[in-house]
Design a protein around this nucleic acid. Structure first.
Length: 880
DNA sequence: CGAATCACG
DNA sequence: ACGTACGTGATTCGG
């Protein structure tokens, strides 16, 4: 017996949309409905071993049956955008699986399904109809089963309805089910039905008379009398309703069952879709065909110098090749020390694995000097292994390229690049080796590990064309070649240099903290009357709001909020609050900074952090292991930690930071004459804003007014909203709105500029910085107010924050160049977004200070001057 | 592993 | 009516 599966497309997609929690791929495409649909479909196919399959969809045009028209007017129009955008998506996916999509002008999906099901059901063909719509139960028949999937708590169960199941659940046959529905009506489908007859009465009537027509014949005998009266007065409505509810089973559908034969679902095209949508859990279904879609690797081992020399000769005349390195990593305390263990090179169609050679470092030195274009997924780790990075040339870092093309992705690993730019799949590192280290596994000559490693250089070579072409299309080539690529070398150098930390001072700082902490702990325990974990917001909340009955209600999903700003307001109510705030501050300083940083100090007495170039959405760099961009400074006790950052003996720090770079960027990008004028007059910009916005002479601006103006300036940079500003200044929304309106009245150019960013984002889906860096904003098209508003603010903020980041990147490259060229003994050791910390030999400090200031100031030329503050000091705190 | 908190620009 | 300021990373708790 053959099996035919018919799926009600919109119905299942709809179910899936509401049944699966929000889900989107890294491009910001919503995918939850498609995911849920495929989940249900795969589950059914696994169970049924279908021979034939088709999916029916409604067309959006009105059909003969009124119900479809209602649906078109009602349901379809209110379909959320997040669902609407997934309709073409599921159709594409189904097509890629060779699953026919059935539609028919003037008919609904129901009618198509009804027609096909009734036409082909037989002793030889059993039909399963998959739908979330119970109206289809009327189609249930000897050889037709209606299957209704239900998803709750992530588990999908399917309810099956053969005719006897319909009878036992509804008390009527599938055919009679039509009449019951018609009598009771259905508001959601605009079926009028007969007023005052509900499910109970309708079922009773049909059980007795079997059809509306027969019931009408005997209308005077109907019980209860209420129903009799209702039906006799609504005969036309009843007949009309029946027509609406009845699914057409003889529509002119010319698709033949042979067109629906199940072929290969797991095609290369469908795998590409699954990869694009990032449905990792479906990937195992593709294992059989992985060979077709995954890359082919031809691997040779290079394990002695002879073999290497042969390869080296080939590389000398090569035009291009892909390269990857494998580091052997050992973890000491919080940090990792890496040594070069293996190199993978893909030349033409062959990949060479160079490993277990003692001269591997020398080999790398030879490689970096070659003329060929060298493609690599991540250059910085390689460059960090090289003695003289100035010798390196012709490298292309492809994760940085992919980051410029779409900075919103959360990773740019080999599997991401292969999926996005080659349309093929490779296994990820964790899939191959789990948590072990590649160097260790490779040492055992593990075949899979070798394949993974080889895939890195292979993908680098074969994805390069597509990436570089895409950079060009998006006009990102200049930013890539002139800023991001050179920056890699500056960052590599900065990481290798590291920053010195005075371990002794750190220790005594920690001791001071611990002493104060234990005193506070005792005081808090005393005041609370019991000991508890102060670090647990849950326990703290119970003590404060439960036991001590302080005012303030629930704020978070999990209970009371005990955030600092909430506690601040409670300070007058109880002495304990001050202690808790101070305790919080000091334990933070201790755990994250005092204890935290200590674990990162290496044998050379320095901390070598990592500066990431492919993390932020705006183009800033980020800092990890440890984060050196959030070292305290705003509080007295916190800023003391900066005293432990010191230069080596005989050296000093030069600290240089841009003054209000974001506002200057805004002035320049918007071209606002008033704002530009303020900067040319070199006035205090916040005071100048205050004078203009609050209509007072400059010399009458009070600190209060200046503070408010400063908040407005910040607000503008963040993507202004009255709510945010009112929160920040503790004023009413109305007052905040007045400030904003005043601001925009004065700075019309700024208003125009910000509006244009939002408009551009809505039109193109992204905004750009001064230097062409792209920030996609998928949120801006959302139907959700909150999400969309966020998109608006991001559209205003990103060009500003991003341009400032571009400028700093350019400045770093220029500072590096200037230091190199001048021959001064100085190195950049930290970058904190608008600030550079440079370590310089004492006698050259003044000269280097001037040089750094000048390089930063002249990094780019804006419509307003860039101003740089620089200071010399024996510690970071002193130099700031 | 997510939420809450808090450090920075 | 909705309910937020923009961008990050580390630590801690608790399910």
């Amino acid at each position: 017996m053959k099996k035919l599966v018919l799926i009600d497309g919109h119905s299942i997609l709809n179910r899936a949309f509401y049944g699966v929690p929000e889900l989107s791929n890294s491009q910001g495409l919503h995918t939850n409905a498609v995911y849920g649909f495929l989940n249900i479909m795969f589950k059914i196919l696994d169970e049924e071993a279908a021979d034939y399959i088709a999916v029916a969809f409604d067309l959006s045009a009105p059909t003969f049956r009124h119900k479809a028209y209602a649906e078109y007017k009602g349901t379809r129009k209110s379909m959320p955008d997040e669902l609407r955008e997934q309709v073409p998506l599921i159709k594409d996916v189904l097509s890629s699986m060779n699953i026919p999509i059935l539609t028919k002008e003037g008919y609904e999906a129901d009618d198509i399904i009804g027609t096909i099901a009734k036409r082909y059901q037989s002793d030889d063909v059993f039909v399963s109809i998959i739908s979330g719509d119970r109206d289809l139960l009327q189609l249930s028949d000897k050889h037709i089963k209606i299957r209704i999937p239900k998803t709750s708590k992530g588990v999908t169960t399917v309810h099956d309805y053969l005719p006897e199941d319909v009878v036992s659940e509804y008390g009527v046959t599938p055919k009679e089910f039509i009449d019951v529905k018609a009598l009771m009506g259905d508001t959601s489908d605009n079926v009028p039905g007969v007023p005052s007859i509900g499910e109970k009465t309708a079922t009773k009537i049909i059980q007795e008379y079997h059809s509306i027509e027969n019931a009408i014949e005997h209308v005077s005998e109907l019980k209860p009398p209420r129903a009799s009266k209702a039906l006799s007065e609504n005969i036309e409505e009843a007949k009309f309703s029946k027509m609406l509810v009845t699914i057409v089973t003889d529509a002119p559908i010319d698709t033949d069952i042979s067109d629906m034969a199940v072929g290969n679902l797991y095609t290369k095209e469908s795998l590409e879709w699954i990869n694009k949508l990032e449905f990792k859990s479906f990937l195992k279904r593709y294992e059989n065909i992985e060979a077709a879609a995954s890359i082919e690797l031809d691997i040779s081992d290079i394990t002695d110098l002879n073999d290497w020399n042969t390869l080296y000769e080939k590389l000398k005349s090569a035009k291009e090749f892909g390269i990857a390195i494998c580091l052997e990593e050992s973890v000491i305390k919080s940090y990792t020390v890496s040594e070069l263990y293996a190199i993978s090179i893909t030349l033409d169609n062959r990949t060479y694995l160079i490993k277990d050679i003692v001269e591997i470092d020398d080999i790398l030195e030879q490689i970096i000097c070659l003329d060929a274009k060298k493609y690599i997924l991540s250059l910085k780790p390689l460059i960090k292994q090289v003695k003289d990075m100035k010798l390196a040339k012709s490298f292309y870092d492809l994760s940085v390229a992919a980051y410029l093309i779409n900075p919103l992705k959360d990773s740019y690993f080999v599997e991401d690049i292969a999926r996005d730019y080659m349309g093929s799949s490779v296994s990820s590192k964790s899939e191959i080796i789990g948590k072990s280290k590649l160097g260790e596994v490779l040492r055992f000559n593990d075949e899979k590990a070798k394949k993974y490693f080889a895939s890195e250089s292979h993908v680098a070579l074969f994805a390069s064309d597509s990436l570089i072409k895409k950079l060009n299309e998006l006009e990102l080539t200049k930013l890539y070649e002139d800023v991001e690529m050179p920056l890699i070398y500056s960052l590599a150098k900065m990481e290798n240099t590291g920053v010195r930390v005075d371990e002794k001072r750190l220790k005594s700082y920690a001791d001071t903290l611990l002493e104060k902490i234990s005193k506070l702990e005792a005081s808090i325990t005393d005041k609370a009357g019991e000991s508890f974990n102060i670090n647990s917001p849950k326990q703290l909340g119970e003590i404060l709001f439960g036991k001590l009955k302080l005012s303030g209600g629930k704020k978070t999903k999990t209970g009371y909020s005990t955030a600092a700003d909430v506690l601040e307001k409670l300070a007058p109510e109880h002495e304990i609050i001050r202690d808790i705030l101070e305790y919080r501050q000091l334990t933070k300083l201790n755990s994250t900074y005092a204890t935290g940083l200590a674990g990162y100090i290496r044998d050379d007495g320095r901390i070598h952090g990592t500066f990431n170039q492919t993390i932020t959405a705006t183009g800033r760099i980020s800092s990890t292991d440890p984060n050196l961009q959030n070292i305290p400074v705003r509080t007295e006790m916190g800023s003391k930690i900066r005293d432990i950052f010191v230069p080596k003996e005989g050296y000093v720090f030069v600290d240089a930071d841009y003054s209000q770079i974001e506002l200057r960027v805004l002035a320049s990008m918007s071209g606002d004459e008033k704002l530009i004028e303020s900067y040319h007059m070199a006035t205090d910009i916040h005071a100048a804003t205050a004078a203009k916005v609050f209509h007072v002479p400059l010399d009458e601006v009070t600190p209060e007014l200046r503070r408010n103006a400063k908040a407005v300036n910040f607000g503008v940079v963040y993507g202004i909203s009255a709510f945010g500003l009112s929160e920040d200044l503790s004023i009413s929304r109305k007052e905040a709105l007045d400030y904003i309106n005043n601001y925009f009245k004065i700075y019309e150019g700024v208003k125009k500029f910000l509006d244009k960013q939002v408009a551009d984002a809505k039109e193109k889906g992204y905004v750009k910085t001064m230097f062409g860096r792209i920030r996609p904003i998928p949120e801006i098209k959302s139907s959700n107010f909150m999400t969309r508003s966020f998109g608006d603010r991001v559209a205003m903020n990103s060009p500003i924050q991003g341009s400032a980041a571009d400028i700093m990147k350019i400045a770093m490259i220029k500072v590096d160049e200037a230091l190199n060229k001048s021959g001064y003994d100085a190195d950049i050791v930290l970058q904190i977004h608008d600030e550079l910390l440079v370590e310089v030999r004492e006698d050259e400090a003044d000269k280097v200070k001037e040089l750094v200031e000048k390089s930063m100031r002249e990094a780019v030329s804006l419509k307003v001057p860039l101003e740089v503050d620089a200071h010399i000091g024996k510690t970071w705190l002193e130099a700031k």
